[in-house]
């Protein structure tokens, strides 16, 4: 029932391009293109539904339609999103030095668990949100994408630190650093800093909660 409930658009547009040297990796390119709608499919959806309802899928027939309408009642949607917002399982994925601040955010001084941000001790397949902590090299990019693909569907990404946002210190003249992880995964919240203070990451977590609950940051 909750299969399509999370994402506003099941067909997410790919934002950005790969680094040049990544296009030679066939697996990665295939993995990304898998999530894009083909032009044919897009045209079919546009024809059968309307422009404003591209996100609606009618493959499941009447039952699907009923559940779709049911969970789109404003109260139901609010309650579902409230539940999601209040129990976020992050993935423990450490790529660089921002993980120190990530660990400090989890300490008892800041205690994000009171806002439903649970300890990062679960399986990938039970997780909701991945915090990409810092620099992502082209070798690590494959693993980040694999991890993202293994997570079940309502899922969110926080890009933490300047390197994850835009390459940071390694922008423009590095042979192996991804210039911003929005090349490989869709990002919901950008947390700036080098590295961000725990307060900054905390602000990002609160923004993500708002985004989950209302569909946008207030």
């Amino acid at each position: 029932m909750l299969r399509y409930a999370g994402s506003v658009l099941p067909i997410r547009p790919k934002s950005g391009l790969f680094g040049l040297h990544l296009t030679t990796s066939k697996n990665i390119v295939e993995m990304v293109e898998e999530r894009e709608a083909t032009p044919l499919e897009r045209d079919r959806i546009l024809r059968e539904d309307s422009v404003g309802r591209v996100d609606r899928r009618r493959e499941g027939g009447e039952l699907q339609l009923i559940t779709y309408r049911f969970r789109n009642f404003r109260l139901i949607r609010y309650l579902v999103n409230w539940g999601r917002m209040a129990s976020l399982f992050p993935v423990h994925l450490t790529t660089a030095c921002c993980s120190v601040e990530f660990a400090a955010t989890h300490s008892s001084r800041y205690d994000p668990e009171r806002f439903g941000w649970l300890p990062a001790t679960g399986s990938l397949r039970q997780s909701d949100v991945v915090v990409v902590e810092g620099t992502v090299t082209s070798k690590m990019a494959q693993r980040v994408r694999l991890i993202y693909d293994q997570m079940p569907d309502p899922k969110w990404v926080i890009a933490m630190g300047a390197c994850a946002i835009s390459g940071g210190l390694y922008a423009k003249d590095s042979y192996n650093v991804i210039q911003g992880i929005d090349d490989i995964v869709p990002v919901d919240v950008y947390v700036p800093g080098c590295p961000p203070r725990p307060e900054t990451l905390f602000e990002g977590i609160l923004l993500l909660r708002e985004k989950i609950l209302y569909g946008r940051a207030l």
Binding site: G167, S174, Q179
Partner: peptide, 12 residues
């Protein structure tokens, strides 16, 4: 090889 001076990084 990337540390040769002739190498051009891909950038963005």
């Amino acid at each position: 090889p990337p540390l040769l001076k002739d190498y051009q990084p891909p950038g963005r």
